[in-house]
Amino acid sequence: MTPTPDLTARATGPVPVGSVPGHRAGSSSRAGQPGGPATVGRPVLEAPDIGRALTRIAHEILERNKGAGDLCLLGIPSRGVPLAYRLGALIAQVEGSTVPVGALDVTMYRDDLRLRPARALEHTELPPEGVDGRTVVLVDDVLFSGRTIRAALDALGDLGRPRSVQLAVLVDRGHRELPIRADYVGKNLPTSMTERVHVLLEERDGRDAVTVEKTTAATPAAAARTGADDE
């Protein structure tokens, strides 16, 4: 049987070339999400900066864990997933062997489900090796209140029992609301609550960049409701 995809159904953008496995292009549907290469706000990281940051994080992960032996990288949709695959590729370059990479959707574990419109679920895909007994590195684009990571830890706990869990983020913008910190940070980016951080990635958005936009939203929750960062 050949599937008959309805091309009009979820046409939120063209399918990027080289889209990562297990990741649905254009599947996210939140209003206000940067869906194209247009720059919103002040650029803080350009493509080469992002590349260097990820390379450094890949090395730090290997250094901290003394190799890639039990590693498993889990990206948090949507933009954590391509980042996880990039880190996996970088680690493989250094180590010469592949690292299991997957995606972990945390939607059903969020603590703000009642406050926001129901959202489509993203795909969760664990590598065949599973997570039991492994060192899982959660990968996300922006660390903000910490609530997404809290949800990710709960989701992970229902999937298995990792030996340890670490966190890698491209940008840490501060304003934590929970006792959570990242093990690997691409860039610490001091922001005010009224600012919004946009992460653009080649795989989804056609180019790499991080920008900061001024808004009127004053809290992470309010920012989230208006469709801000991938927090």
């Binding site: 059903m108 489900l113 419109p117 129901a118 489509a120």
Partner: peptide, 16 residues
């Protein structure tokens, strides 16, 4: 049940 019960009662519009 998830789609009917999660989400705010004020904002019911879902774009897909």
């Amino acid at each position: 049940l998830y789609l009917l019960l999660s989400g705010s009662t004020e904002i019911t519009e879902v774009t897909a």
